[in-house]
């Protein structure tokens, strides 16, 4: 790995910073005390066993948890020094700047073209829409496969193509950060490879946070890795917490924490 890669708390500009982040579902605490800095133009992988809260933390960054009535967030997340949970911040506007790709491809039941144009249109895009659609599809490495069938339904594509369409859709509104929630878990190995290559391409321009179950994937695509774990409470539910966060090579070759070592070597999870 490139030795110039900035450390999590290094000199490169911090895009997102979580401080004392706690997430509750009703009265249950799901995640406790996460402190984390995400630097510009890096790929950060969130790994850890099921139920460790990595997806929950991810969904705090674009306030998708707002949509769940019972969810409550404490602590702070700053996006380029602005607290995104401040009362004057609009979640809708925030989400147009922090894009997201989901676990299962979820193209809208519209044409391929409209899938991409939708986000741009609601966000008041003033440029040439055809160009934007083409650019976005090219960036998502999908253009050559779909350029002759832009009017076809997005649902007619294969699973891997659908996921790249969802990535193109996210890119189309030029977000600064892209959150990916296990983007390959529903894909076959070949499609997975394509999406991973795509992530490598995209990190030139975007900051990417990717949640993954797949440790090889984390080691292949990411610069930094955050390892989360879960512990049981007296009440019997699980609380997720951040165990260790460092350069990916450190996490995988020389982790500071015993738990990380055990997880990496496959002893649990």
């Amino acid at each position: 790995m490139d030795s110039n890669t900035p450390l999590p708390n290094g000199t490169s500009e911090v895009v997102l910073r979580a401080k004392k982040l706690n997430v509750y579902y009703g009265s249950n605490r799901a995640v406790r005390d996460v402190d984390l800095d995400i630097s510009e133009n890096t790929v950060v992988a969130f790994i850890g066993p099921s139920g460790c809260g990595k997806s929950t933390v991810l969904r705090c960054f674009n306030r998708m948890n707002d949509l769940i009535a019972a969810a409550r967030v404490e602590g702070s997340i700053t996006f380029r020094d602005d607290d995104i949970y401040a009362p004057n911040v609009d979640a809708v506007e925030l989400r147009s700047r922090i894009g997201m790709v989901f676990q299962r491809p979820n193209p809208f039941p519209k044409s391929i073209y409209e899938n991409i144009a939708f986000g741009a249109r609601i966000n008041g895009y003033k440029g040439n829409m055809d160009e934007l659609v083409e650019q976005s599809l090219r960036k998502a490495a999908l253009w050559d496969e779909v350029k002759d069938k832009l009017k076809q339904s997005g649902l007619a594509l294969s699973g891997g193509q659908q996921q790249r369409l969802c990535i193109a859709r996210a890119i189309a509104i030029s977000p600064e950060v892209i959150l990916m929630d296990e983007p390959c878990s529903a894909l076959d190995p070949i499609s997975t490879l394509k999406v991973e290559e795509l992530i490598q391409e995209l990190k030139q321009q975007y900051t990417i946070i990717i949640v993954t179950h797949n440790m090889q994937q984390a080691s292949r695509v990411s610069d930094h890795t955050a390892f989360y774990n879960a512990e049981a409470t007296e009440k019997g539910n699980k609380i997720g917490y951040l165990v260790e966060y460092d350069r990916t090579e450190v996490i995988f070759q020389n982790p500071a924490q015993q738990k990380t070592q055990e997880y990496i070597s496959g002893r649990f999870g």
Partner: peptide
């Protein structure tokens, strides 16, 4: 969720 994530 897909639509909300685009800022709709």
């Amino acid at each position: 969720d897909g639509a909300y994530a685009l800022g709709a």
